[in-house]
Computed example of a mutant assay.
Amino acid sequence: MKQILVFVLFAAVLCWTMFAPTYKHILIFRQAMLQKEVDYMLEIGANGSYGYVDAMAIAASRQRLGQHGFQPDKLEYSVAATNGSTATSAAAPVLRGAGIELIISYPYDHLFHIDRLIGMTVPSDYARMAASGLKMSEYVP
């Protein structure tokens, strides 16, 4: 009985040491892609031609991230302006000097469940990774 217990514990630790780096790599990749997308969307949305991040830009972003393995329906976008105005309307773009803030979040999708084998606490099923950015608008009417 003791040998079976040792075997089970050894197998659990062996599985964790073999597969944990793979899951961490996926986590790092997803976080980097989210941050890259935030930076790209803010660069386009805050330039002198736009001054907003509208629903079309968000739909295009969902499609781009979907090509990299994200599930588009699980992505959540939050767009705000530092001056309190809406930053999602082409009819009322954010004027120069005010900032546009963008946050994209995505669930962890059980990436840490293998860590439970060795007793580590994992994020809840509702926890989300997020990337954010703030860029000053350059739009001048």
Rank of each mutant, 00 (worst) to 15 (best):
V13R: 07
L5A: 15
R116D: 12
I4G: 10
H68K: 02
V79D: 02
S105P: 04
L134A: 03
H25T: 12
Y52D: 05
I44V: 08
W16R: 06
I26M: 11
R128G: 07
Q31C: 11
L65Y: 02
D54Q: 02
G51D: 08
I103W: 00
L65W: 02
M33Y: 06
V13Q: 06
I118S: 01
C15T: 15
R96F: 08
F70S: 05
T121K: 14
V122L: 01
L14V: 07
H25K: 13
A80R: 06
H68V: 00
M120A: 11
L111Q: 00
K2S: 10
V8N: 03
L95I: 14
H113K: 10
S61R: 02
L65V: 03
L5F: 14
L117C: 09
S137N: 09
A11K: 00
M120T: 10
M129C: 08
P123G: 00
I100E: 07
H68P: 00
V53K: 01
P21H: 14
Q35S: 07
R62S: 06
A11P: 03
A57Q: 13
E138K: 14
Q67H: 07
I26D: 03
Q3A: 14
Y106D: 08
L134G: 00
A81Q: 07
R116I: 10
A130C: 03
L42F: 02
G48I: 11
P123Q: 01
Y108C: 10
E43V: 12
I103D: 00
T86P: 07
V140Q: 07
A127W: 06
C15V: 11
I114N: 11
G84R: 04
G133T: 10
M18N: 08
M136C: 05
S124C: 12
A80S: 10
A59H: 09
F10M: 15
V6C: 05
S61P: 02
F19N: 09
R128P: 03
L102Y: 03
V13Y: 08
